[in-house]
């Protein structure tokens, strides 16, 4: 592999994971914190709150996964090499 392509791929992979994790990380932290607050206030609605949290976390975490896929493909199955 061309050293320039290899180094650019490694930098791109690290940026893809890092940048893709920022938004979902903040979102997941906020959602989980608010959910725990909600459960503490209304323990009788725990099931409903946790269910909604599961759905939102699954949606948010897939954003991180997209970045992860790009970086793993760049590192292990680089189409530019």
């Amino acid at each position: 592999m061309d050293p320039l392509v290899a180094s650019a791929s490694v930098i791109a992979a690290s940026l893809a994971v890092g940048l893709a994790a920022i938004g979902p990380g903040i979102g997941q932290g906020n959602a989980s914190g608010k959910a725990v607050e909600g459960i503490a206030r209304q323990p009788e609605a725990e099931g409903k709150i946790r269910g909604t949290l599961l759905l939102t976390l699954a949606f948010m975490e897939s954003l991180t996964i997209y970045g992860l896929v790009i970086s793993l493909v760049l590192l292990f199955a680089n189409p530019l090499a």
């Binding site: 989980s32 959910a35 459960i39 946790r50 992860l68």
Partner: peptide
Amino acid sequence: VAQLGRQKSKVGKNQLALFIGLIVIAT
């Protein structure tokens, strides 16, 4: 998510390790 606020204070990242392993094996 079920353990959040009980045994754990944050959502675990084990599930992402599973995905990373899967894609690395696939490549």
